[in-house]
Design a protein around this nucleic acid. Structure first.
Lengths: 329, 329
DNA sequence: TTTTATATGTCAATCGGTTGACAGAAATTT
DNA sequence: AAATTTCTGTCAACCGATTGACATATAAAA
């Protein structure tokens, strides 16, 4: 087998009869160059089918144009849409995007942080919900978080969780629900969505109702989730309204409800959360609080770029949410 | 502001009172080293909070441990699950994964191919459906495709599309459907799922029925898709069975069907395709042909690694599909 | 005691581009 | 004709880690 040698800048220079620097100038459009030389160099590059080695360039420039997205998984409509929107925007700006699906595994989250610290990526967007990753406190390198508190120095992009909670619960109240239950992640996870629970409790208390919350961790199996929701219907047969923490769970709750002979929207009203495209497509009948995913992506990219470009006083932002009415109820 | 200097290997060497090579030996566990030296070096690294520069290492090693996934979008249950499964497997093997959502845009697909040729990634997994990307023919670098024919040299991982087509149509026939319509991508896209159409037509012909296919391009707006499906119901009011090209379209068709007062499964039977987790979660009532996504990911990773490791006769594989019965019908 | 194996460490070239410093030639000004 | 500006191009250091070649010291074997 013929050993295929990598063509390097030097080979191009030799063939074109110029120096390495001249070739580099042609590549980077730098300094003064004669038309003749440019042509010669381009011909040599074509003839040799030359491809500059990006790694060498990155080493010198101290920049990779890579960012990493650290989220629990891409296999979830909210994160999938968010990551897709982020990728689209970064791509336009000349950044490539590393997928870091942490599965809510602190080790993997740390690994990606190491990537950042090893100069392999220029910045990080974190949306996974691990706690106690102390490394975040040690670094001043560019990190933006989405819907999660990470540390004092790290700007957060989130949607208005308190308002979202109000919208959802108010809707259930308006629809005449008497016994409203809330499902949420375990609140020990440092996430702004505990504000939803706050809103739920505030509104319930205001109406002299007793708030009841069922917690389901994000990363347990579907079977475990089903178990919890069955328990919910068993322990609270009076329930007639549910404010679910996300649309997938809302959908699951509706299915479990059917087992208990509850039918939406007659016997049971459910409001979900997130309102991602895919969910709207596959479950259009679901009422939900929609997070402004494209806008959140835009903001997160904007903030990360500010950090990458050396800005120091980068501020967190909160974006408004919207109640999406179901198509059937 | 204090300029924060990057700590490099040389700084560690100086603090530990040894040479650069010695530090490198400690880092890479190479050659003979005294316990004492190892300890000294580690202490120096800790004290300086040293992080090796991965780019420099990559330059020397001529390996980035990066692979790119080029798919139309991650915002689709099938691709999302596939990419998540791929990422999980690559991560275990020490590879980081670049997201390349091509939106079926040939330019973006070419850009990612360039990344490969620029030595920025060690391999590529392509699943987007662009045509005429001639660059693929020029390269011998590691590429594996999923559910798509790219070129003679490039191994393909696909599921058994012909069998999937048979299962879907046979199911509709068994359920007593008399007028079955198939929806598909425009077949000019070089994809093995034209085999589904083949199966549909073969089976229809065998039963002396006239095959009717409606084509919807993958990347048009939801509104356009709705338009096409409405047209389908208008032009063929007799339709009582539909074999859809994917679950999202199946869900959309069911919704449009309701507009025409067709109710599943009484007046209309629909079989979707893909059977991704998210879809099963959000639309459990949908009958579908399930592709073995985890197995496809496993195979694709396996083949790509063979290529990366220099194997030359890497063979394409086809994996079996499964009909998933709806929960309600 | 001499030879050989094992342990410890240093030097300098290398991976493949990039760019500041500098030099000579041609064009323009004074 | 001399001085200045504009082109065109070369040289060598540099980005940061890796490793083959080599030197010396110590321990084990002959």
């Amino acid at each position: 087998m013929v050993e295929k040698k990598t063509i390097k800048l030097d080979d191009v220079a030799k063939l074109a009869g110029v120096s390495k620097t001249t070739v580099s100038r042609v590549l980077n459009n730098r300094g003064y160059l004669s038309e003749k030389t440019i042509k010669k160099v381009h011909e040599a590059m074509d003839e040799l089918n030359y491809r500059p080695n990006a790694i060498a360039r990155q080493l010198f420039k101290q920049k990779t144009n890579l960012v990493a997205l650290v989220f629990p998984t891409v296999d979830n409509p909210f994160f999938a849409e968010l990551e897709a929107e982020l990728e689209k925007r970064f791509d336009r700006l000349g950044y490539r995007v590393l997928m870091g699906n942490s599965q809510n595994n602190p080790k993997k989250e740390r690994d990606y942080l190491k990537l950042l610290l090893n100069h392999q990526v220029d910045g990080l967007i974190v949306g996974s919900h691990n706690q106690g990753i102390s490394e975040y406190k040690k670094t001043t390198r560019p990190i933006v978080s989405i819907e999660r508190f990470v540390g004092k120095q790290i700007p957060v992009v989130s949607s208005d969780n308190y308002q979202g909670g109000l919208l959802a619960v108010q809707r259930l109240l308006n629809d005449g629900c008497k016994h409203i239950i809330h499902t949420n992640y375990p609140i020990n996870l440092v996430s702004p969505n505990e504000l939803r629970q706050q809103a739920y409790e505030d509104l319930m208390n205001k109406h002299n109702r007793k708030p009841i919350t069922y917690s389901v961790s994000f990363d347990v199996s579907d079977e475990e989730k089903e178990r919890v929701f069955r328990k919910m219907f068993q322990e609270h047969p009076e329930v007639d309204g549910i404010f679910a923490d996300n649309d997938t769970n809302a959908s699951l709750i509706i299915r479990i409800g059917k087992e208990f002979n509850r039918h939406v929207p007659d016997d049971l009203k459910v409001v979900g959360y997130d309102g991602a495209n895919i969910t709207r497509m596959l479950s259009p009948e679901l009422t939900t609080v929609q997070q402004p995913i494209p806008e959140m992506a835009t903001k997160a990219v904007e903030l990360l770029l500010q950090l990458i470009n050396g800005k120091t006083d980068v501020k967190s932002v909160t974006l408004p949410v919207k109640l999406i009415n179901s198509t059937t109820a």
